[in-house]
Each structure stands twice: as C-alpha cells, then as structure tokens.
C-alpha cells in the first residue's frame, strides 16, 4: 500500500490535479469547478466536514495532496446528491467524493478508525460473501467493529431497536446461520474477481 503511495508521489511529482484526473473516479471533472461554493452549502453533515467539497477542489488544484487524501471529509458524504442537483457546472461531486475516499484508502492514507470507512468495508465484505446483505451479521459486526467491550456497549444501546425490529418481524436471529444469498455464488465471485483484476491492471498501468 505505502509502496503504491510512494510510486504515485514519484510519478506525479507534485501535480496532484493530474494524479486525481488519472486515478480518481470522475476525477476528470475537478478542473471544471468554478469555486462558487454552492456544493459546500449543500452537505447535510457540512458542519462536520473539515474541508467541504469546494475547498477540496481548490486544494486539489493547489497540490495539497496529504491534506486532501488524509482528510476524513469525503467519508462524511451521505450520498444525498444535493450538490449534484445544484452545481452550475454539472460536476458529479458525490462520485468524486466517493472516488477520493476509495483512492485514499488504496494508497493507505485514509484516516484510521474512520467509522464510515470501517462500516463501508464491513458492508462490502458482508454482501460479497453471499451476494446479498445479511443485516443481522452486518449489524453485529458493526457494533463490534471497535472491539469487544465497545461492542457490548453499543449493542446494549441498540437493543431496544433490535427488539422492535424482531417483534415486527423485520429482523431474524436465524440469519446468523446463513440466511439470504445468491444461488450462483461461484459465478458471482468469479465475476467480482475478474472486475477487480481488470481494475487493478488499469491502475497498475497508470501507476507504472
């Protein structure tokens, strides 16, 4: 991971905008931003963002690589699409935020213990195992993602919600035994593996 980071630093030699354009999903769009600030005023968790989207776009141009990639900001995106609906330049801001988050994670620069980063990984692992989300296991691993004693605390805090869901049959303890999934798991996994390989080869190319 950090090797990859080193490679990219050497390859782009301070041209962070180019690095983003080449490697971040929809990163090509960043240069179109005219800094009007509409997006920054649109984020529902805006007050918690260290750097709102407009600022991130400015920082990318200014070559502030570490500040951008190590920031927790992108991980606060709720995918509400407010920004996309409003941006006068039509930037796919939501996707750029997701893309920056993914890229920072690949480089090993994403902030440690960022809760959404952890949760998103749990979610992905959960769904790719069988092809469908097992909500019970996802919930349990979520509660326990910060370790066992924290997990017990969170689980207790959430217990009434769990009980409500159980009573209304919107949750089942049986899911722990397997639960929902695709039938063609073999094809499903082979497909994902292939998609990953293609993408890694593509990244390798731009990173070489």
């Amino acid at each position: 991971m950090s090797n990859y980071n080193q490679e990219m630093i050497e390859k782009y030699r301070g041209n962070f905008l180019k690095e983003v354009q080449d490697n971040v999903e929809e990163g090509d769009w960043v240069k179109m931003c005219m800094q009007c600030g509409v997006c920054s005023g649109s984020c529902p968790l805006g007050p918690h963002w260290e750097h709102p989207p407009q600022e991130i776009f400015m920082m990318i141009r200014a070559g502030k690589r570490d500040e951008v990639l190590q920031s927790s900001s992108m991980w606060m995106c709720t995918s509400c699409y407010n920004c996309i609906a409003r941006c006068p330049r039509g930037l796919p801001i939501t996707h750029i935020m997701h893309g920056l988050a993914t890229y920072s994670k690949r480089l090993g620069l994403a902030p440690k213990n960022q809760p959404t980063a952890k949760f998103a990984q749990l979610f992905w692992d959960n769904l790719t195992r069988t092809g469908r989300v097992n909500e019970l296991k996802l919930g349990l691993s979520l509660y326990f993602m910060n370790g066992f004693s924290e997990g017990i605390k969170t689980a207790l805090k959430m217990k009434d919600i769990g009980l409500g869901m159980l009573k209304t049959k919107r949750m089942t303890p049986m899911e722990i035994l397997g639960g929902h999934g695709c039938k063609d798991k073999k094809g499903f996994h082979a497909m994902l593996k292939k998609a990953q390989e293609i993408e890694e080869a593509r990244i390798g190319k731009s990173g070489s």
Binding site: C182, F188, E199
Partner: peptide
C-alpha cells in the same frame, strides 16, 4: 444480488460495483 447501495465504494472499486 445486492447492488452495494451508495456505500459500496469504500470496499469495492468502480468496476466491481458496476458489475
């Protein structure tokens, strides 16, 4: 199969998600 919703990005890259 699951679509990975809007939160899949952090686990899967672009192509696995599209797949």
């Amino acid at each position: 199969n699951c679509c990975s919703a809007s939160i899949g990005y952090a686990g899967g890259g672009e192509l696995p998600r599209l797949a």
